[in-house]
């Protein structure tokens, strides 16, 4: 009996080791361990054995069975591993093929610059306010100390709809609106940005363009001064045009400020050496600015004896052109997809 069991085990082990695939293994498993297997038969025959032999042989059968089960499991695992490996190999791909492109849009470069300016000034405590593009003569001119018939005001430059309404020629209109709307006449620190319109179209002027305007008004004790204006514009221009940018203030004339200054920056093309862009002067005029004219304060409800402040404004289109090296202003408004798509990434 002992011999027989040993033989059964040896035969089975041999068969297991010769097995070629999982299906044969399953069949063999039934054959070796199933109810009709030799081992099972051997167990059934236990009852025919003597009292002394019975436990001994029983243990022997169980040991053989356990051993065979282990062997089979081992084989099963081997086949499973092999199977998986084959499957994975079949799933091999060319990792250099193009990816599934998720469409990426882009922001217009002018709006990118607008956002940059907004973020700079909000970080300095300025509120961003908005005003209508369809303005009244009153806010666009009259309340800015530009009465009818004033030489600085020229019908040729404006798009009038009626005698009263026009497309705003300058974001300065928002200055007056902000002062009038502030009923407590508390200090003001705002910027406003947006589209403006003038009746001119040539290589360097578009009839539609964008401006930013800043206004700071405070009680006279605060002593808002030209030096403050200068410092503020230095921060602004250096943020936009680089830390090395120098500013030159030139006295000028705007009806809504007194004193008034035009501000030049070192030429962004040549860095001040002189080139065709700056007409060999090394400077490029970018900003208009000044201390708010007492008449403007008065006309919009602020007592010029108690309040003072500064204002400034500049065109955004040219800043954007410089920032991104755009060579022709027309690109900004023709909206060629090949142009727009270039502005689809983070900017340092």
């Amino acid at each position: 009996m002992e011999e027989l069991i040993k033989k059964i085990q040896q035969d089975a082990e041999k068969k297991i080791s010769e097995i070629k695939d999982i299906k044969e293994l399953q069949e063999l498993k039934v054959k070796i361990l199933g109810k009709k297997s030799e081992l099972s038969e051997a167990l059934k025959n236990l009852k025919d054995l003597s009292q002394e032999e019975r436990p001994k042989i029983g243990a022997l059968v169980n040991t053989a069975r356990t051993k065979l089960e282990e062997k089979i499991t081992e084989m099963e695992e081997k086949f499973a591993r092999k199977n998986l490996e084959e499957k994975l190999e079949k799933e091999a791909i060319d990792i250099t093929l193009p990816s599934k492109k998720i469409r990426r849009g882009s922001e217009h470069p002018l709006n990118r610059v607008i956002e940059e300016i907004e973020d700079l000034f909000t970080s300095m405590g300025y509120d961003v306010v908005e005003g209508p593009e369809l303005e009244t003569d009153e806010f666009c001119f009259e309340r800015l100390n530009l009465p009818e018939g004033h030489p600085a005001r020229d019908m040729q430059d404006s798009f009038y709809i009626t005698d009263k309404y026009l497309l705003r020629t300058q974001t300065s209109a928002v200055q007056a609106r902000t002062m009038v709307a502030n009923e407590e006449k508390s200090p003001i620190r705002i910027i406003t940005l947006g589209k403006t319109y003038r009746r001119e179209d040539d290589a360097t002027h578009s009839h539609q363009f964008n401006q930013i305007e800043g206004l700071v008004i405070d009680r006279k004790e605060t002593k808002i001064s030209l030096a403050d204006l200068k410092g503020t514009l230095e921060v602004f221009m250096r943020k936009m045009l680089g830390d090395k940018t120098e500013l030159r203030f030139r006295p000028s004339y705007f009806p809504f400020t007194e004193p008034s200054y035009e501000v030049d920056v070192t030429c962004f093309k040549c860095g001040g050496k002189g080139c065709s862009l700056c007409k060999q002067t090394g400077w490029i005029e970018v900003l208009g600015s000044g201390m708010v004219h007492p008449n403007v304060l008065k006309m919009n409800g602020y007592d010029p004896d108690k309040y003072a402040g500064f204002a400034f404004g500049t065109g955004i289109d040219r800043l954007a052109m410089f920032k991104y090296g755009i060579t022709d202003m027309r690109y900004l408004y023709t909206n060629d997809i090949k142009f727009l798509k270039q502005f689809d990434r983070m900017d340092k």
Binding site: T122, S123, G125, R189, K230, G231, E234, L247
Partner: peptide
């Protein structure tokens, strides 16, 4: 004239 920044109460712009 030397540029400087206005001395005004700090606040967050809106």
């Amino acid at each position: 004239i030397e540029g400087k920044l206005p001395v005004v109460p700090m606040k967050r712009g809106s």
